[in-house]
Structures are given as C-alpha cells and as structure tokens.
Amino acid sequence: MDLNAVRTFVAVADAGQFQKAAVDLALTQQAVSKRVATLERDIGVRLLTRTPRGAELTIDGQAFLSHARTLLQAEERARASVRPGSRALRVDVVGRRASLAGHLRDFHRAHPGIALDVVTLPGSAEAIAAVRDGVIDATFRAVTMPGQHIPDGIEFTPVHDEPIHLFTGPAHPFARAAAVTPAQLAGHRIWMPGNVPGAEWTAYYDALAADFGLAIEATGPNFGVEALIDTIAASETLATFLGTQTPLVWPAGYDMRLIPLRDPTPVYPHSILWHADNPHPALTALRAYLASVHHDPPDGEIWTPAWARRATNGFSGPH
C-alpha cells in the first residue's frame, strides 16, 4: 500500500476539501485527486465522495480512516527507530561481564536520557564490519590483533588498559601470594575454555603465553563463568586469568583469590571504534564520557601484545 496515498487520504479527510489538503501537502489538487483515486483502486472501495461543500467520507472511508492513521503512525515509529538522535545508540561489547560493559552502565547512569542498545557480536571482524556498515554505532575491541584490518573511515582511540589478575581457588600454590610475575606461571595450568580460535581475547592470551612461556589450556566445553568458578574453586592446580574489573559473584565458602600480576603487569587494551561519518549525537557524548573517566595505570612495567602497542603508537585519530 502506497503510504503517500494513505497520507493524502487522511489529509483530505481532516481538511474536508481536496483543495485545502493540496495546500497542506504542497501538492496540486490534481495530484491529490490522483493519489486518492489510486488508493481507492488498490483497495477496491470508494473512500471519499465529492460534494458541493468539499469531500465527505463514505462508510468504507470512515471504517478505513482509523487504520490509515495507524499505518502512518507505524511509519513514523519505523523511521524514528533508525533516525540518529531518536533511536537508541547501538554499542557492541566483547561480553556483558567485561569491564567496558560496566563503563557503559556508568555512562547510562550519568546520561539516563540516552537510550542504549548493548549487543555482543561474535568477533572483531563482525563488529568492525557492523560499524563500517552502520549496523552499530561503536564497538569496544582490542586493536589491531593479527590479521585484523581497519577499513577506511573507521576511527578508534584507546580508552582503558585493564590489568589482568590470576584467579585461583584457596588450595592453589599461589593462593596466598601477594603478587605473581607472569614468568612464575610457567609450568602451571592456566585454564581458559572460552578461548576460541580467531577471537581477539584468544590472540591476546596467545601472545602472553608466547612471551612468558606459559601453557594456556582451552580444553573442554565452555559452560560459562559459573561453571569455571566451580572448577577453579575445587582445584589445587587450575587457575585462570580475569580482568580486574570483571564483575563476579561466588558462594561465600569458595574463598576465591584474585592475585595481581607484576613485573610486568599484563593489561588488556580496550579501544572504542566508530565510523567518522556517524552522526548520532549520543556517540559524541559517549566518547566524551570515556575520555573523562580516569584510570590510574598500574605501578611498574606493563605488558601488552606487540600488535596492540603498534596500534596505540600509530594512532593519530581524534581523542
């Protein structure tokens, strides 16, 4: 159904005259008459009758009018759902438990009037393509992992280097350590079943393992964080890595330990990526908020993969 014809019919019904409707719509009276005639032909009934006083609704026209208004309202809602400034800001995060998801929650608290649509796309390539195509407005990712290409028009800026901690149960050999160096972990079992080939976090931990002689196991099905905690809590040999700001809750009797890594401190390099031509006003507000959030760097030397250091050093886009 031609919505322009529906809009013209509603205008004539409201004005009571073809001529006045033509003025309201900035059309000729002939164009208005033609649109209404086309609509009547499409639906197979007469909607309006010309009278000396103008135009009157037929019985069918009276029945159709409320549905016509509903159609036009649905059209406006559909347009608003994708109109920058009126639709929600669509932002991708690696995981809803990741620290950047927490920053988005804080942003929403600071700007409750801004609607957010938080999504989790399966990988960096999909997320960057979605930014390029306008499917999402921004993504939080580590750049540039091996094989990753940043298309023309995509800009990024680092927003947070998150320290990585060792996560153990109470019986692990390092459970009572104040801190551990990455080199000390050589020969110990680091279990990360969520590390899948091609994922950016897998590339990060592969680089960490290569630089410090670690062996990271990704064996077994990934049943989620709760199952991971259950296994780590009961093990004397298994440990895993977690970001310091990953929100976790475990039963009181588990006595889990988050142990800082030092000399150097591995940090996960979060960046925000967006398209330079994206006009959504909330995107500017989000970037300004992230720039205002202060993160104290860890004491001493830090470590990031070589590919992340190249991306940061070579970055020249807007902050």
Rank of each mutant, 00 (worst) to 15 (best):
M1S: 10
L3Y: 06
A15R: 09
A15N: 00
F18W: 02
K20L: 11
A22V: 10
V23K: 11
D24N: 10
L27Y: 07
T28I: 04
Q30N: 07
K34E: 06
A37T: 12
T38P: 04
L39E: 00
E40P: 01
E40T: 05
I43F: 07
V45Q: 02
T49R: 10
T51H: 05
R53V: 03
A55Y: 03
E56R: 09
L57V: 07
T58C: 08
Q62G: 08
S66E: 12
S66L: 00
Q73I: 04
R79Y: 02
R87I: 07
L89D: 04
V91E: 01
V94I: 09
S99V: 15
G102Q: 13
H108G: 05
G113F: 08
D117W: 04
V118F: 02
T120Q: 06
T120L: 00
T120I: 04
S124P: 07
E126C: 06
I128M: 08
I128A: 05
A129D: 13
R132S: 09
D137W: 03
T139M: 03
F140H: 11
F140G: 07
R141E: 14
P146Q: 09
G147D: 07
I150L: 10
G153K: 09
G153V: 07
T157K: 01
H160T: 06
H160V: 06
D161Y: 13
I164C: 03
H165G: 11
L166I: 15
H172Y: 15
F174L: 06
A177W: 00
V180D: 08
P182M: 14
A186D: 14
M192Y: 13
V196Y: 12
E200Q: 09
E200Y: 10
T202V: 04
Y205A: 02
A210K: 03
F212Q: 09
L214W: 00
A215E: 05
A215R: 04
T219Q: 14
V225Q: 12
A227R: 01
A239N: 06
L242S: 08
G243W: 01
T244C: 08
W250C: 06
Y254L: 11
P264F: 11
P264I: 14
T265Y: 11
P269A: 12
H270R: 14
H270M: 15
H270N: 10
S271G: 06
S271H: 15
L273R: 01
P279I: 12
H280A: 15
P281R: 15
T284F: 05
A288V: 01
Y289F: 15
H295K: 05
D296Q: 10
D299H: 08
E301T: 13
I302V: 14
W303L: 06
W303E: 11
T304C: 03
G314A: 03
P318R: 12
P318T: 12
